[in-house]
C-alpha cells in the first residue's frame, strides 16, 4: 500500500541508520557515491528498502536520480505527493 511521502528529516534518519553514519556526516546534499563512497550494490539495497517502506515501485531509470537525500526526497515526493 502506498504511504505518504517522507519528510527530508525522515529520509535522512533512514539513511543515517542504514549507512551507519551521523547527521553531521550526511548533509542533505551529500552525494552518496561521490561524497560517501556508497557502491552500486548498497544503492540497490537501499532502493529495495525504500520501496518496501513507502509502498512504491521505482523504475530503473529513476535509480540514477537517487544521488542524495535531497534527490531521493524529490523523487519520492513527486511519486507520492509533497510531504
Amino acid at each position: 500500500m502506498t504511504k505518504p511521502a517522507p519528510t527530508r528529516e525522515e529520509l535522512r534518519d533512514f539513511f543515517v541508520e542504514e549507512l551507519e553514519l551521523t547527521d553531521e556526516l550526511l548533509p542533505y546534499d551529500a552525494e552518496f557515491a561521490v561524497d560517501l563512497g556508497i557502491d552500486s550494490l548498497t544503492t540497490m539495497e537501499l532502493v529495495v528498502q525504500l520501496e518496501k517502506r513507502y509502498g512504491v515501485r521505482l523504475a530503473e531509470a529513476e535509480f540514477a536520480e537517487l544521488t542524495s537525500v535531497n534527490a531521493v526526497h524529490a523523487v519520492l515526493s513527486a511519486r507520492l505527493g509533497t510531504a
Binding site: L41, T42, M44, E45, V47, V48
Partner: peptide, 9 residues
C-alpha cells in the same frame, strides 16, 4: 524482486 540485493551475491 523482493530478494535483498546485498545478500544475493
Amino acid at each position: 524482486a523482493e530478494l535483498s540485493p546485498a545478500h544475493v551475491p
